[in-house]
Design a protein around this nucleic acid. Structure first.
Lengths: 334, 334
DNA sequence: CACAGGAATTAGAGCGCTCTAATCTTGAAC
DNA sequence: GTTCAAGATTAGAGCGCTCTAATTCCTGTG
């Protein structure tokens, strides 16, 4: 920067102004500085400018799992909304290991990003605030009760009800649920399932499944190995494990949807492929991402945010994995 | 930091040493500093430390497309290898828009990351070097001829040959190829296809397909709308478009693999699901990511790297989407 | 032609840390 | 009781930028 200033015959301060595209600089000097920067191959060290200006023009996004297409959707929403702001986006990848997750969040905080969006935060909310050191933060798809931290979410209770009601409407009565594992703190989908089942006077049946295909598969295996009548429908808390469940069901010689119906959650790319045609609840992940970015940007701009946006209304997208249950003995409908 | 030093009754320099976990600090002072930091809620500003130390302990990873599971695999490889180094990982997401990609790379460079891994670099190699400003960089899965930039890749020519030979071995003669679009610079898979076809004395047939399911679908549509005999096998340059192609083929009332065989490339999560059972060439994306991280870490550590690692040897994973062609008129085999 | 007022430019302090070199403690050896 | 080296601590100068306030340079005016 020193050299550029000398080369262009101006002060360091002016170089700084030119590089930032400040308005009140004469065309002649501006050109001179640019030329000098060009010949010397100078780029401003943004580390230094950030330090000096106390603002990084960067937002951090924590993504829990790159293998889960739902997070790619959220990324899209965030990126789209941020594109026309002056900010850049930095992604950190989380983990189902809470320590790794903390490390990832800390790395974002350490970089002094202007704001953080947490997509798939799994850790202890109580530990979040001290970790953040005052960085404005929005939590995505989890309603978290920490003062000063906003969240944006889909009404997952309603989403789960949608799934259960859909299956009920088709005639299913033994509807099982593949639920998040204990280390993942998103209870709403399970809550919604339990509430809906209670409302309909049905007996709930829950098995935990990790957030992967393999997880869904082994969970489904447990479900069908249980004593007593088998479920005629499975509602999973995410698409990946729903797919795993389908694999397992087919492996057991049962047909989907003729023998067992399956509903997923997330309505990800995968689900919509005609090859799969997974009936799925759509939480509008992309919209959620955009809403989170919006909220964060408003906060940063100092726009007063009096009320958090309402939980997004989920929708059910019926496809080929749901149908009426088989007319079999044991269904109790004789 | 000033305050912490005062609180602990030591100098600023000592606080710095303690926070970095330097060895030669007495236990008493160390404890005092930690206590002071705790009560004051102090965390070092890594921005400042990076500026002062000229090293960021951070590596940047550019991922082209979060919706493509192959990149999640590469991420895994990189992350695994980096986990036991002292570095952190920062992800930037690229784009098929070259300008966006440049912006993403620049943001990494601006942050002064110690090194960069480019997974899915699409831009002009000539423009890469000036953009990097000397940041050590490894390019993943593209062989790039820029002095000073390393790359790690799978032998895609061999991989494509594997696919073609597999189909040929099953009896296919009209093997079409879904190729990368022009704006994506990874010609090896197409080259491999062309070479293999020439070697076998077969007529090549190529259609371009964007890197998405929808892209594969419309490309397949073009393929089957062409005049002349239809292909009995389709080899796609990636899994996503292979899946799209299957969708289209089935939509046309044809069966996979009975009427048309399909081979993908990447052997991603998707492909391995029994529901899909996509025969796919495995470039070992995870291994590739790990190798890239390895190479970069070696460079950073000053370990002499005399030869780049050989191109990874791809393997073919046969599944359910390939079978002998139908015994039909027009196959020329009577 | 002096002068106000706005635009353009600059000096210089400071952002929060690390680094080098210098200084201060030790405690063992003589 | 010295002496000395190793270990522990610190002063102070940067890192490369931005910011504030002050200065200089232009106009157009009376």
């Amino acid at each position: 920067m020193e050299e550029v200033a000398r080369e262009a015959g101006v002060s360091r301060a002016l170089v700084s102004l030119v590089m930032r595209g400040a308005p009140n600089v004469s065309a002649a000097r501006r050109a001179a500085v640019h030329r000098a920067a060009e010949t010397l191959g100078y780029t401003p060290n943004r580390l230094a400018s950030r330090l000096a200006s106390r603002s990084t023009q960067t937002l951090g996004l924590l993504l829990l799992d790159l293998h889960n297409p739902a997070f790619a959707d959220m990324y899209d929403g965030v990126a789209r909304r941020i594109a026309d702001s002056r900010h850049q986006l930095m992604v950190a990848v989380g983990s189902t290991d809470t320590d790794d997750e903390s490390a990832a969040i800390k790395s974002l905080v350490d970089l002094r990003v202007d704001g953080i969006i947490l997509a798939g935060f799994i850790g202890d909310p109580g530990k979040l605030l001290p970790m953040l050191h005052g960085t404005p933060t929005v939590v995505l798809s989890r309603d978290i009760d920490v003062p000063g931290i906003d969240f944006v979410h889909t009404d997952d209770v309603a989403g789960a009800a949608l799934a259960v009601d859909h299956l009920y409407g088709l005639g299913h009565r033994r509807i099982a649920h593949l639920s998040k594992p204990d280390n993942v703190p998103y209870p709403s989908r399970r809550e919604g399932y339990l509430q809906a089942m209670a409302r309909l006077g049905l007996e709930p049946s829950i098995v935990q499944a990790p957030m992967t295909r393999a997880g869904g598969r082994s969970a489904a295996a447990q479900l069908f190995d249980r004593p007593g009548p088998e479920p005629t429908a499975v509602f999973s808390y995410n698409d990946l494990s729903a797919i795993g469940a389908i694999e397992e069901i087919i492996d057991r010689g049962l047909r989907v949807p003729e023998d067992v119906s399956v509903v997923g959650y997330d309505n990800s790319d995968l689900a919509s492929s005609p090859l799969l045609g997974l009936t799925s609840v759509d939480p509008n992940s992309t919209g959620l991402g955009a809403a989170a970015a919006n909220l964060l940007l408003d906060r940063l701009a100092g726009v007063p945010v009096d009320a958090l946006p309402e939980g997004f209304a989920p929708t059910l997208v019926p496809r080929k994995t749901t149908a009426p249950p088989p007319r079999q003995p044991g269904s109790g409908r004789t």
